[in-house]
Design a protein around this nucleic acid. Structure first.
Lengths: 331, 331
DNA sequence: CTGTTAGCGCCTTCAC
DNA sequence: GTGAAGGCGCTAACAG
């Protein structure tokens, strides 16, 4: 691989001059500029990133650690964040914690070793020693979607309260009174916020306040299915179900089929937090609060870059939209 | 951040000794080993990756470029590849081409600048100049899922012919004769292989060879919907549909609803290449050939590491499994 | 505007 | 088994 020395030699200038041209410094003559650029092109020169990072004490690399890359929410978020980072001249390192603190720590180690300039973190649980170390080292950090206790970093996430309000309004329009709510773990701020917003808003929307209709899973399909079975086994018969995320909704629907049969289950309307495209194809179709994952990813990157540039960044709640797939609904 | 010099000073040894201990060289006394390790721990020392890369002329970083990270196939593949890479002491850099050659080139540039040790590539189309450059620089490369003309690199992908055979066997068991096949672009080797395998096998499985039943989209939902409409508008009335990937199946189902109504559409059985969990919840449920994306990712990483270690790597076709969700079916 | 040079942090000879 | 020193490729500081 050609080095900057090769480029300089071929252009007949000193390495310093070549470096200035290649990094776009204005202090170069038009003549040397054209010769250096030509030489670089001819040699297929690509700067050695590690060497540059070593010298400049920055890498232009951001780390994004998500809790599960397989979830559509995060894969969309990651995609948008990557685009935004690239547009701003940064490379985004994407890694996956697989909802496991040990793997998260391994990734944070790798990030630290790479000397990333900043971290976008979607945390799974409490603080870990590695995270402490990064915080202590004053690495710029922003949080995605979930808050984390005792960490003072800007948070970019969904407007959970607003989303729940949209779902409640829809339930009211559809005339539902007996609504089952399957929540997520209280330990996740998303789970807690959605749950709280639902409890706070249901009465005003004409929905039964019978707590037998409410249960919570773990934001995964199996746990949600168990929660739904518990609700049904209490003898209540909801006319609609609200799942607190897409996996939860999936599990709840499975449980209803299992306990009530496909026929009866398909007469219960379903609304979900987190939209996925196949909700249009289930029976019944699922109406949903749509997270704007790309907007969250972009806002997170922008906030992080502000932090890196020495500025301050403010937390932001990104608005949701609502997709009405009910019969006679708008979508 | 602590450097190796700090560690050496604190341990009261020379940097050379500290380096030897930290990189696990056997030529160290038990005494200096314990003192260096202690000092490193106390200082929270993490080696400076870029500096190490500069000196060693390798980065222990692999690049994975997928054509669309939002597809479940690739996000699962990426997840498994990342795990495998980490287990082998490598960091995996995940990037996304968004089915766009320009973005792919930008990523390849970033990879080249980072001096990755090897590339896992899921190509979208033909060779680009950047890719040529990397090939010319003898960067170890493996291909994922799609072949690419004129590039002599091992390919790790789905056994498309085997998967189609599983679907054909199922169609036969279900007694279907009039089967619509919605394929993908011939330009993708996956599209071509599935199409060819279907044409070659249908007669032996008692399926009509009427080509009016066959059309192709672009592996995306919209294109597939159009293809399905073309089939229906030819006046044929299939009793089953085979979609060549999950997006294709989605589009075909949408088109059938649109043209035939939900009622009639739900009486047409559907089988798909690419399984996704919500196929269990559509009406009718979709039976599917399941790609083993994690196995492909792992095999790709292993093959690439063999290449990096100077060995040879052989292409590999990973077997599919079949998920029967038909009434009376096994799943 | 350009050439020269030091040094970023690390590993790896080369002496001892 | 250990210390000293050079140099990987690059940028920035300093002369000119």
């Amino acid at each position: 691989m050609a080095t900057i020395k090769d480029v300089a030699a071929r252009a007949g200038v000193a390495v310093g001059t070549a470096s200035r041209v290649l990094s776009g410094s204005p202090q170069t003559s038009a003549d040397s500029r054209s010769r250096v650029l030509a030489a670089a092109r001819e040699l297929g020169y690509i700067a050695h990133g590690p060497a540059r990072s070593l010298r400049r004490a920055r890498t232009d690399v951001l780390g994004l650690l998500v809790s599960d890359i397989r979830s559509p929410f995060f894969s969309e978020l990651a995609h948008a964040a990557e685009q935004e980072a690239r547009a701003r001249g940064y490379t985004l390192l994407l890694a996956n914690a697989n909802e496991d603190a040990e793997q998260a720590d391994a990734v944070l180690d790798a990030f630290a070793s790479q000397r990333i300039d900043g971290l976008l973190l979607s945390p799974q649980g409490p603080r870990t020693p590695r995270l402490e170390a990064l915080l202590a080292a004053k690495l710029p950090i922003v949080l995605l979607n979930r808050a984390i206790e005792g960490v003072d970093a800007p948070l970019y996430g969904t407007d959970n309260a607003g989303g729940v309000a949209q779902a409640l309004a829809w339930l009211q329009r559809r005339g539902h009174r007996d609504v089952a709510f399957i929540g997520g773990p209280e330990g996740f701020s998303t789970g807690a916020e959605r749950h709280d917003a639902y409890l706070a808003g249901r009465e005003a929307h004409g929905i039964s306040t019978d707590d037998a209709l409410i249960d919570a899973g773990d934001f995964l399909a199996d746990g949600a299915a168990e929660a739904m079975l518990r609700v049904l086994d209490r003898g209540v018969r909801p006319t609609a179900v609200f799942g607190a995320n897409n996996q939860t909704t999936l599990g709840a629907m499975r449980a209803m089929r299992e306990r009530l049969g496909a026929e009866a289950a398909s007469r219960i309307e379903v609304v979900s937090f987190d939209d996925v495209e196949w909700f249009a194809f289930t029976s019944p179709p699922v109406s949903a609060v749509r997270n704007d994952a790309p907007a969250i990813g972009r806002a997170g990157v922008r906030g992080l870059l502000d932090l890196i540039d020495g500025g301050t960044a403010a937390s932001q709640r990104i608005a949701t939209s609502f997709v009405d797939r009910s019969e006679g609904g708008r979508a």
